[in-house]
Every structure is written in structure tokens, then in C-alpha cells.
Nucleic acid binder design. Structure first.
Lengths: 336, 336
DNA sequence: CTGTTAGCGCGTTCAT
DNA sequence: ATGAACGCGCTAACAG
């Protein structure tokens, strides 16, 4: 790898001049500019960004922490963030937090130690206090899918509670009155919120939430299958299952079919997230849209604006969910 | 962020000593070691990895280039690689190449400029020559899903041709003789190989490949749908569709159902890759397994061994595909 | 407009 | 066993 020094020698100028033409921040005479460029070209010179970063305390890179690298949800999130930054000439460093407090903190520390100019965090295990401290330490970051009051202006969130409400209301409007609910892990903020929305819809229709009709899953397919089986066997009167995400809904689909239920004639199933496989299922899943893409891009915009002082379109921090009607929800069967 | 200098001052030792206790590479008296550790603890000191990297020409980070960040396939790949490295204390920097020559080269340059100790490349657009040059420049890297002869010992590949062969043979063994094929973009090595395998199976069973029964898709769902529709309308005698990946197979499923075909009674459909949504489809997709996970982990192992001199389990570079039987393939219907 | 110089934070000789 | 000093490759004052 050629260094800036070799370029300066070959171009017959000082090393600072090379830096200047490359960074275009100080006027340079056209003639010498061309000499430098020629030398750069000839040597195939490429600035060492590690050195750049050390010297300038800027890295043009943004760190991202997500719980998992796989899964349809985070895939789209990462992809959209990367796209937005790429077209701004910034780069992205990704770390997986695995919903584990220690790993999340490690990931954040790692990204900081890499001199990231800013972070985008989708973290679940660290406390609100930890995040507030992070802010006080002047770390630049944006939170995705989590709201912490003192950080209100850097939280990109979905109105999860409203989403939970909409899902259940959609079911209620189809006439169902015996409704099972399969939640995510209740210690996760979004799972909690979605469930609160569910309760609100129930109450609005004069129904009582019941222990019997609640199952706490883990957002993975298997737990949807288990949950559906347990709920349906405990209470055969259930005509609809509201699931806190699509993975679990897919599991519920499987369980229901194995129990001989006709879908959606005997049983309606509702998902949440609208991940990209939700229309591969049979019947195609009715679900609540989670605008991941838009939210990822917005996080990127926020950083472009606040950290890099770029002019960007209007910033929006709260996103609204909406029901996506497909084929897994039907009218409630007549009572026998 | 505290620096090593502040630690040394607080511990009352030289800056070099701090470096030594942290890197454990030179004996240090226990007493001073503890003093240093105490200071580190007190200041919450964390080495600046950018500076470390500049000084030592080592970064403990591995760069990865994949075509896309989303999609079930790359998600698992990235995830498994990250896991393996995390438990070895290494970190991962990810870039998307978007199957575009310029972007792939940019990504590689970016990762090099970040001083990555090694790269894992899943690239499709750059030429073999380019990769060979890269090797000659002493860049350390491993290739995934691509075989380049001069780089034979750093290629982790799936026997794609054999996979294509197995897929079609599986169909042939079910009695089908009128078989449509929906390929990936033929300029991609794997698409080409899979198709070659298809031809080989056909030939083995005494069948001629036919223009009429071939459609070149782009590995995305939509093209599977389009392809299936075109093939089935052009040649209604077709009783089975072999698709070069699961996404396109999912599209084909949709098209077939819309054309009123009973699955798998009227029409069998075969996928490839066994991505994680392939059992969400209806009927559940019969497909060829692509051991992504194992291959990603193996790439990591290779680097751990060759770049970091760690002892690892046996290295395997060629992986074998196998048919995963589910429900989308049935016996050929009796000829009318 | 351009060259000189001093760091950025750390690893690593070379002495001691 | 420990400290002083140099250099990694680059940016950012400061002169001129």
C-alpha cells in the first residue's frame, strides 16, 4: 500500500498539499492539483482510513447494533440503513447484541473504540439509565424501536401499542369474541406495548382479558406453535389467535392445521411485523405492518443531519402501524 | 475517553508498562501489574482500537462482503460467521457488494483501508483475474461460493453442479419427463453450475434439454412467478418445475396456484437452498439443502487458522448438497 | 497557495 | 522488569 508520503515525493510537493487536494478543503493551484492526482493515480494510492481516523477524530463510519444478523426483520433494517449511508459516502459497521446485556455493551464499546461518528442502536437488554449515561458521555446515537423519555429526540419508534390495538380490533371487528393472545417475551418493551394495546381493544369491546387465553412466547416460530396448541387445547372455544409477531403466527398456522382447524373458516390468525415471508404462508398472513425500511432510513437521516450537518428531508420519529389484510382472518364462525 | 497516558500517570508507571500488562506479552512484576489494572478499572479505560491498529498493523477485525444484507440466505451466513469470530474475540465489518463490480471493488477497498486482518468474500461481479491479483498483492482472503483454480485452497464452495443434478434427478425419479427449469442469472457462477447439473440429469435419463422449457430468472420471487406462468402457458404438458432457488420456487408456487394447478398432484415444484422460510410455504417446499451455516463457520475457521495461527478443527472446503424432501414434489400424473 | 511541524493513541525497539 | 523515544499514516494549525 502506497502512503501519502510516497505520493508527495512523486508529485514533488509537500505531504500536506496531497492531503489538501484529496480532502478538497483548502484551495490548491490547479496545476499542482493535477500533479498530485496523477501521482495518486500512478501509485494506486488509497488513504489509510485508520490513520485518517486517528488524526482527524472522524471515521465516516456509523456503528449499528441489532439483536441478530439473520431474520427477515433485521435484514431489511440493515439493508436500508446501509443503502442510505452508502449514497452519502459513509460506511457502516455492524455488531450483534444478541439481546444480552453484556454483549450489547461489548458491541457498543467495540463500535466506540472504532471511532464511529455515531451509532444506531436496536438494543433490548441494556437499561434506560445506561443509555442516558451514554448520552451524557456525549456519545452520538439514535435509538430504534425503543423510547426513553430523556432521549425523546433521538428515538425512532413504532407506535407498538397502537399496533397491538389495531390487530385485536381487526379481529374483534370480524366478530370474534373468544380470542387467544401469543405475546413476545414480556420483558421486551415492544412485547409489553403490543400486549397493552391488545388489552385496550378488548376492554373497548367490553371483554375481560383472561389468563387462560394468554401465552408468553419468545418471538420464535416454535413458541408460536406450542402456544397455539396449548391455548386451543385449553380452550376450544377460541376462534381467533392474535400473535405478537409473524414468526409465531407462522408457527400457530402449523399447529392449527395439525389440530385439523380449517383456516380461516374455523380459526383466524393475526400476525405482526409484515416481514417479507408473511405472504409465502398459506393462507397468506393478515398482519400489522411495521415500516422497518422507513424507520431505518430515518435513523440514517437523523444522523446525517445532526452529526454530518447535511440537509435532509423532514425528520419523523414516531411511525404508525396499519393492518395489512390478507387471507388468514375471516369472520367468526356462528356459535354452535 | 481515557487514554493510555492517563492510565500510566495514575498508576505511576510508564506508558509502555501499561501497554505491556494489557497485551500480556512481556513479563511485568505482579505488584505493578495490579497498580495498572486498578488504574484501568478506575478510569474505565478502553484501548482505542484505531490507534492500536495503526501502531500494530493488526486490527482483530475481519471484513465481509456479501451481495445483500437482507434475504434469508445472507442473514444466516453473516450470523454464523459473526458468532464464530465473536467467540474468538475478533470483530466483523460488513459491506454490501450488491452484485455490482464497482460496488464490490469499493467494498473491498473500504475493508482494506480499515486494516482488516482478512476478508471473507461472497462476490459475484468481479473477475477471477481481479481476485488472483488480490492474492498476489498479499491480501488475505477467503472466497465463499466461488471456485477460482489458482485460489483453490481458499475457496469454500458448495458443489452446485451436483446440487442441480440432484434436484432434477429427484424429479425424474418421481416419474416426471416434462420438466421446466427456471434458472438464476446465467452470468452468475452458481446459476450456471446448477443448470449444468440439471442438463446432466436430463441426459442421464435420455432426455433432451429444450429452449421451450427454460426460463432465465433473477433469483427473486417475482421472476419465479413470471417464469412459471410463461413456461406453463407455452407448454401445458409440463408436470414439474425445477427452480434454481427457493425464492423463485415460492413465486412459481403462487403462479401455479393462480393457474388452477393442484400441488403437487398436477404439478411438482422443486426449490434450491433450503432457506429458512421454505417450510412456511404451502405446500412445504421440497428443496436442496445449502449448508450456509457450516460454510460460513468454515470460512471463519480457515482465517482463524491461517491468519491468527489458532488451532482449529479440520478444514473442509467443498460442501455437498442434499435433497430435503417435503411436500411440493409428487409422482408424475398419468399421461392423459 | 504551499511547506513545516506537531500531534492523534498506541506498540515496540533499545537501553537501563 | 521498566522507561524513553520513535514511528504507524494522516490531518490541522501555523508560518511564510
Amino acid at each position: 500500500m502506497a502512503t501519502i508520503y510516497e505520493v508527495s515525493k512523486l508529485a514533488g510537493v509537500s505531504l500536506a498539499t496531497v492531503s489538501r487536494v484529496l480532502n478538497k478543503n483548502t484551495p490548491v493551484r490547479e496545476e499542482t492539483r493535477l500533479k498530485v492526482l496523477a501521482a495518486v493515480e500512478k501509485l494506486g494510492y488509497q488513504p489509510n482510513s485508520v490513520a485518517q481516523s486517528l488524526a482527524s477524530n472522524r471515521s465516516n463510519s456509523i456503528g449499528i447494533v441489532v439483536p441478530e444478523l439473520n431474520g427477515p426483520f433485521f435484514g431489511t433494517l440493515l439493508s436500508d440503513i446501509e443503502n442510505r449511508f452508502r449514497q452519502a459516502g459513509k460506511h457502516v459497521i455492524i455488531a450483534a447484541g444478541h439481546s444480552d446485556e453484556k454483549l450489547e455493551k461489548d458491541s457498543i464499546a467495540f463500535l466506540q473504540s472504532r471511532n464511529c461518528d455515531a451509532l444506531i442502536l436496536h438494543v433490548e437488554a441494556v437499561s434506560d439509565d445506561y443509555l442516558v449515561e451514554l448520552m451524557q458521555k456525549k456519545v452520538r446515537f439514535v435509538l430504534i424501536n425503543r423510547f426513553v423519555a430523556p432521549l425523546y429526540d433521538r428515538c425512532i419508534t413504532l407506535n407498538n401499542q397502537h399496533g397491538g390495538y389495531l390487530a385485536t380490533r381487526h379481529i374483534l371487528e370480524h366478530g370474534h369474541r373468544h380470542i387467544g393472545y401469543i405475546s413476545g417475551p414480556m420483558w421486551k418493551h415492544d412485547a409489553d406495548q403490543r400486549y397493552k394495546g391488545h388489552i385496550r381493544a378488548l376492554t373497548e369491546f367490553g371483554l375481560e382479558p383472561s389468563e387462560q387465553r394468554f401465552y408468553e412466547g419468545d418471538y420464535h416460530e416454535k413458541s408460536g406453535e406450542t402456544g397455539a396448541r396449548i391455548l386451543l387445547e385449553n380452550d376450544p372455544s377460541i376462534t381467533a389467535l392474535v400473535c405478537a409477531n409473524d414468526e409465531m403466527a407462522a408457527g400457530a398456522l402449523t399447529a392449527a392445521r395439525e389440530l385439523g382447524r380449517e383456516l380461516p373458516a374455523d380459526l383466524s390468525i393475526m400476525g405482526f411485523d409484515n416481514v417479507n415471508f408473511s405472504h409465502y404462508t398459506h393462507p397468506k398472513l393478515t398482519t400489522v405492518n411495521y415500516p422497518v425500511g422507513g424507520m431505518g432510513e430515518m435513523a440514517a437521516q437523523l444522523i446525517l443531519k445532526r452529526v454530518y450537518d447535511q440537509k435532509v428531508d423532514a425528520i419523523q420519529t414516531v411511525f404508525e402501524p396499519r393492518v395489512i389484510e390478507r387471507c388468514s382472518v375471516g369472520p367468526a364462525p356462528d356459535e354452535a
